[in-house]
Design a protein around this nucleic acid. Sequence first.
DNA 1: TTGTAAGCGTTATCAA
DNA 2: TTGATAACGCTTACAA
Lengths: 340, 340
Amino acid sequence: MNSDRRRTTIKDIAETLHLSVSTVSRALQGNPRISKETTEKVKKMALSLDYSIHGPAAALRTGQGNNIGVIVPRINRQFFSSLIGGIEQVLRTNALNTFIYQTQESFENEQQGVQAMLNAGVDGLMISLSIETQAFDHIERFIRSGRPVVFFDRCMEDSSLSCVMIDDFNAAYQMTEHVLANGCKKLVYLGGSEHLMMYRNRRKGFEQALLDHHIQPSDVHIYENSLTREKGYDITRQLIETGQTPDAIVSASDFSALGSILCLKEAGINIPEQVCVTGFANELFSEVMDPSLTTVEQHAREIGMKAAEIMVRNIKGFSEIETVLIPTELIIRKSSLRHR
Amino acid sequence: MNSDRRRTTIKDIAETLHLSVSTVSRALQGNPRISKETTEKVKKMALSLDYSIHGPAAALRTGQGNNIGVIVPRINRQFFSSLIGGIEQVLRTNALNTFIYQTQESFENEQQGVQAMLNAGVDGLMISLSIETQAFDHIERFIRSGRPVVFFDRCMEDSSLSCVMIDDFNAAYQMTEHVLANGCKKLVYLGGSEHLMMYRNRRKGFEQALLDHHIQPSDVHIYENSLTREKGYDITRQLIETGQTPDAIVSASDFSALGSILCLKEAGINIPEQVCVTGFANELFSEVMDPSLTTVEQHAREIGMKAAEIMVRNIKGFSEIETVLIPTELIIRKSSLRHR
DNA sequence: TTGTAAGCGTTATCAA
DNA sequence: TTGATAACGCTTACAA
């Protein structure tokens, strides 16, 4: 545990082999200008001396660090962790490291995260904005540094930036149509923050479906900022207690849908016969809960992979801007499927 | 999107202010040797020039990169993502960045990951071994570089290394006692890979409880490598078909427990009255599935935080070795609680 | 095919 | 209180 042990450098290899550092550097890179034997010798010595390249030094010299910063609201959400899995896989196969930072949905943390990425000298930034974020100086600062930025899921609304997200409008539209097709007429919608495009789009999709099917607006309640299990529970309880029980609860989150279902079950209300409930995200629990939850599969891993691919192309010098919509999939389960 | 834009350096600041780079460097660090006015001036200019420190260069000079590598089998497991959340939080409050790498349970990826960390010049390594890992040259290589290594959850069995894990033996022991207290006598155990200490310890805890309660070994079946939903389902189906249905299935994983439950429900077998089922990990779905699953809460976040604290202390020069057992919590739910 | 030397952005030593 | 300069480990013209 020799903690003041100096690391092996190419200089060490050069000295033991009586070569110059440049020869060693080139040999290590497999440069054809170096003879086969020398290259072989150098690589062998590198191995036996426990050499590993000092990335930061190489980065300093070449201006390329091979590190990509990834900023997400939370890492312990099925959606984001799968998405990161996709990012990581694509970046790795392109010899890029993944630097992760989670904001915990805090704007301040997000600012710090971007600064940390700037300091770390990452070659590009992939980010999904926090719920709180409404100002973008920190992002613009990064962009000014001349390095690529790719948004995913929660994007900045600027068409000159790359963004990969799902088709929220359509997903919500289809979901609402499905609920209406099951005979529901008095709907409650549990939405998110209106300043995030994705939640606005979901709400718009919901409303458009109602419009297209001639549902009376007076029969509909829309709640903002209602994405948590607790919110779902509380709102549902309040509706029941005030005699306003709807016949469908369409939620922009599996968690609030879960809260609603728990509350309805407690109140002895039958799902789906009396009330249909739908969620959003296809969290692991949605399949195995009782009743199983109708929801939207977002293909998180693919979103991550697609975003990473755009980043890789940008890093390689193709500075194209892309906005990609990953198609969603309606997963119909018991919580919304009536038998008539 | 000026991609050949040179980044602002302290030299730029120095020139515009007619100061030397050393003064600027010191001012930026808040060195008291620099006058208040100069410090102020420099910081203001840094801001207006969009300056941010170039970490790699500073790392090269100081030998301290403030980056910690974290290697995990998978990121999209509730357990690991929560754990990483804990790590990230502690490291960040100590001005350390988190470098993440997932092995997908592959030994080859793990080797590459350690190498990537070595190259990235991280100051320390936090790692949970892949299931496949049985050789440790890559780890020893990192240790030889003189930088601290902290294991979590899946550790190398070497008392000269720091490790944070849960008390698997006791957790399994308590779980087994709970099942026995519910009157079960013919038990099936679904375990993991025997070469991982944690799974060995769980199996030992299970067996010790049987021993202490005088259960006939002939009434017990132990399966190795049975941690997935599919394995749980298949083994359970096979037991039922061959007329060997047990009265309890104790699993080392929530996923195989889930598989078992799905199979039992399909076969019309009552849980828990005919068969008790227990899992391990308290995955999100275990609470909301039907029946809710008795399991073990591992306090993943705390494991991460504790491991990160040890790392931070090592980075700061205290090279103490610590093995920490985080206490678990038995979460008793419907899948194992008989009413008599 | 190999070597020399400059320079990436920063910090730290020494000098003023 | 500030400045000049060397050094960290690496890559890459340019030279041999």
